[in-house]
Computed example of a mutant assay.
Amino acid sequence: MTTLRSSVTRTATLEPHVVDMSEMIEKFALQQLAWTYCHAIDRGDLRLLRSLYHDDAIDDHGPMFRGSPDEYVAWLPSMLANWEATSHVISNMLFLIDGHQAEGELAVLAYHRTPAPGSREVIARGRYLDRYEKREGIWRFLRRSLVLDSMEERSTPIGSGPSLDEGIEKGRADAEDACFTRLAMFGRQRGLPGAPA
């Protein structure tokens, strides 16, 4: 049986150190929070997205948006309406934890495609600089801010032959996405009646 050193983890260092089970658990919970944020944005699940923030949190996307979680969720539909598809991918994740407070630097690649005709791709590379707080045993965002490291915009490539994605179901930013219609537990999480069993 593994004994956890303490219910309060203090690993506010990036230097190599002995990692115990409690630190691994806390860091995994923070990773899950980050991955769930990407899923919620790309699938348009604003209820789930809102649940990831403390009520007194701030989301800071620079000049585009800065405000409370409720304001962020209210603003997102108008911004997401500009895109036919989005894909947010988190790669490098560094977390520093001090008790019930934590900070994270998370590298993000955010892909956006406008609708046809004249479809364009916008690829942003940046970092989320996050502050988290654990309340009642649950980590949530206390402050999420975006730093842009580079951006690329280009026309969507159009091939001359058969499309590689021909016949493959397209992703959607709503409850009709295959994630919810093909995976019963995801469908129930989204609150869909009659989700596959």
Rank of each mutant, 00 (worst) to 15 (best):
F65G: 09
A116Q: 15
L109Q: 14
A107F: 11
A29H: 13
L33K: 05
G99Y: 00
F180H: 09
E103K: 11
M1F: 07
H112G: 03
E105R: 15
S51W: 00
V73A: 13
V147E: 15
Y72L: 14
Y72K: 12
A124V: 06
L48N: 02
G137A: 07
I123G: 06
P196W: 01
A57R: 07
I123P: 00
L46N: 09
L52W: 08
S91D: 13
G126I: 00
G118V: 02
A124L: 08
G99S: 08
E153Y: 05
R120G: 05
V122D: 10
T114P: 00
M79H: 12
F180P: 03
A34E: 13
D59S: 09
G194L: 07
T3A: 13
Y132V: 04
I25F: 05
R190P: 03
A12W: 07
R5W: 04
D165R: 14
G167C: 05
P196Q: 03
L94W: 10
D98I: 01
S7H: 14
D165W: 13
S87A: 13
L142A: 15
R127A: 09
A178T: 12
M24V: 11
G44Y: 01
P69G: 05
H100R: 14
M151E: 15
S68L: 05
M93E: 12
T3W: 05
I123Y: 04
